[in-house]
């Protein structure tokens, strides 16, 4: 049994303009100690997916018309708020792009970690404080005995991110949900934080769901990948398979649209035309059809589900693997790009 199994999750929002299908049939699994990377453009439903796992979407306007979130076999969509409170922190913890969403500016960093520890474990104040100092040291805060009594504003951006990770890890969760944890940081600080997360994962065996729009970050960290587009999972598979042989035209286009540090830069970027769909008025057929370079007539009619194209490698596209490979070669030849 997978540690976490999400089956056909649908998370919708009732709004005055209509129903926003923010997440619309997403399935994936995460095993112990594994890292799943979720990538996709702005508005594709990454954060709503993570917030659904934690049951933190505001209900209403949010509702879950379908699906299951099985954590160790238990469906979280049926858990009470009391049960969820225990699961959040104990089993699953989340870190955000902006650390100030989880750090309260009027309490010291230490107080907040101690509070988190004491909600979940029966320990004395002294023990909780020792634990807070220990986790701060764990995440690389120098001088934690002194820093524990400081307020968030006395920390730099990178240190706040570390403090938030410390708080998330203080109860040894089985899964850490990281929603763009380094997007607001400079690259040299991002490198520090990612190194830290990998180190902690090795030490504690935590599973990580890493949400990012940076394909480089998933290439660095993820064991497997889920690509999201317009509220759907459009491709899932082992990291190498998705990168070296993407089977969904969107993932392929995305990889081809970004410049690479290790390439000379002479190759023209392949842009994806148009922009992402509105989640209220989704196109008929495949969500990506209006922008797809491989599109054929049926794509505007048939809504493709995620299907296994190669062992362990799923994609939502009605084209066969052969057709997809043919199209890739055709476009590369048109652009005069050598195949890797």
């Amino acid at each position: 049994m997978a540690l976490l199994e999400v089956k056909n999750l649908k998370t919708h929002f009732k709004t005055p303009d209509g129903i926003v299908k923010a997440v619309d049939g997403v399935s994936f699994t995460v095993d112990e100690g594994e890292t799943l990377g979720i990538v996709g453009e702005s508005g594709s439903g990454k954060s709503v997916t993570a917030m659904s796992l934690m049951q933190l979407n505001p209900v209403p306007p949010c509702f879950y018309p379908e699906g299951e979130i099985l954590f160790e076999g238990r469906n979280l969509l049926e858990a009470s708020e009391r049960e969820m409170q225990k699961i959040r922190g104990d089993d699953m913890a989340m870190i955000f792009q902006d650390p100030m969403t989880s750090l309260n500016p009027v309490f010291t960093v230490g107080d907040q970690i101690m509070e988190a520890v004491r909600v979940h474990q029966k320990v004395s104040k002294k023990e909780a404080r020792d634990k807070a100092i220990e986790v701060l040291r764990d995440v690389g805060i120098a001088n934690p005995e002194k820093r524990v009594d400081e307020y968030p504003h006395q920390y730099s951006g990178g240190m706040r991110q570390r403090a938030m990770i410390a708080m998330a890890l203080s109860c040894n969760p089985k899964i850490l949900l990281a929603d763009e944890p380094t997007t607001a940081l400079d690259v040299t600080i991002q490198a520090q934080i990612l190194e830290l997360m990998v180190g902690l994962q090795e030490k504690y065996g935590t599973a990580i769901i890493m949400i990012t729009h940076d394909l480089g970050v998933v290439a660095q960290l993820a064991d497997k990948i889920m690509v999201m587009y317009g509220g759907r999972a459009v491709e899932t598979g082992p990291t190498d398979d998705v990168f070296y042989d993407p089977l969904m035209p969107y993932s392929w286009s995305l990889i081809r649209s970004i410049p690479r540090l290790d390439k000379a830069g002479e190759v023209r970027l392949l842009p994806i035309k148009g922009s992402p769909p509105s989640l209220i008025f989704l196109p008929k057929g495949c969500n990506f059809a209006p922008r797809c370079p491989f599109v054929k007539d049926e794509c505007h009619e048939i809504d493709p589900g995620l299907e296994e194209k190669r062992p362990g490698h799923r994609a939502a596209c009605i084209l066969s693997v052969e057709e997809i490979e043919e199209n890739k070669h055709r476009i590369d030849a048109e652009l005069g790009v050598e195949q890797a």
Partner: peptide, 23 residues
């Protein structure tokens, strides 16, 4: 340059990073 992740998993696994300390 060393801090920037490259969207190429095999390359990433081989890379040795210089991770700067401090802010």
């Amino acid at each position: 340059l060393s801090a920037i992740p490259i969207p190429d998993p095999k390359l990433e696994r081989q890379r040795q990073r210089v991770v700067l300390t401090g802010d």
